[in-house]
Nucleic acid binder design. Structure first.
Length: 128
DNA sequence: GGTTTGACCATAA
DNA sequence: CTTATGGCCAAAC
């Protein structure tokens, strides 16, 4: 029945589902999320999906735990965005290097296949 | 429904 | 190290 849920387009919803799997104090790269979705080349859409993220619509998504492959924070040119992102990550225990980068070897969180499948499956069930 | 765009990534020079 | 280019594909216009 109508549960107030917005019929989000496939890709965005998947991205959010994956990002929600990232535990506290861990980070993932756009490429990781893209790979979890099946294609390593959709990394751009991951970022774009997060750009279109609306907490009022999709609920709380730890978007701040998603960074680029360099371990740095990306931003559309905004200033508040990366600033608060780093602040949140540090609050979770993520350490930034002097250059403002995260040590991926230490904080990168690999996705479990079962985890991803379960999340997407649950999403598919919810969409139904 | 074609064109533009984009919080990226990998590779090459 | 930086800059340039190709790629990949969905949403917005």
């Amino acid at each position: 029945m109508a549960d107030g849920r917005v019929v989000t387009p496939g890709f965005h919803a998947r991205v959010y589902a994956i990002v929600r799997l990232v535990p506290e104090g861990r980070v993932v790269t756009y490429g990781d999320v893209a790979a979890a979705l099946g294609s390593a080349s959709v990394a751009r859409h991951v970022g774009w999906a997060l750009a279109a993220l609306d907490p009022a619509v999709h609920g709380e998504v730890p978007w701040h735990r998603v960074i680029n492959a360099s371990g740095a924070i990306s931003a559309r040119g905004e200033v508040d965005r990366p600033s608060e992102q780093q602040r949140r990550l540090e609050a979770e225990g993520v350490v930034f290097s002097p250059g403002g980068k995260v040590n991926l070897k230490r904080f990168r969180q690999p996705f479990g296949v079962e985890e991803v499948v379960a999340a997407l499956d649950a999403l598919d069930e919810a969409r139904r």
